[in-house]
């Protein structure tokens, strides 16, 4: 199965697990499967049906936004990683 690495602050919603096995042939399907297993992640990854702007999904060193986004096809043993873009500042 493919794996998704969870960023440290969100591991509280995966019972502390850093890597979650997921099913699916695309990034979107893999994320949907992740949310089926750990629904509390949804609010922090998605705003409606869209990935939050500061949430990046990487396959190796590649950001899926520069591939086919959530439609990017993945291999059965692909390693995905959720990486927040830390940002802050005044209004």
């Amino acid at each position: 199965m493919a794996k998704i690495r969870i960023p440290t602050p969100l591991r509280a919603f995966t019972d502390g697990a850093a890597d979650i096995d997921v099913a699916g042939g695309t990034v979107g399907e893999a994320l949907a499967n992740l949310l089926d297993q750990h629904p509390e992640l949804r609010a922090h990854l998605f705003n409606g049906e869209e990935l939050r702007s500061f949430v990046n999904i990487f396959i190796g060193d590649e950001d899926i936004r520069f591939l086919q986004g959530l439609d990017t096809e993945i291999d059965a043993n692909e390693s995905l990683r959720i990486i927040p873009s830390i940002a802050g500042g005044l209004k």
Binding site: P7, N56, P84, S85, I86, A87, L90
Partner: peptide, 10 residues
Amino acid sequence: HRYAMRPQDW
């Protein structure tokens, strides 16, 4: 008034 870091740094 803005700060951001690269995802690769994370």
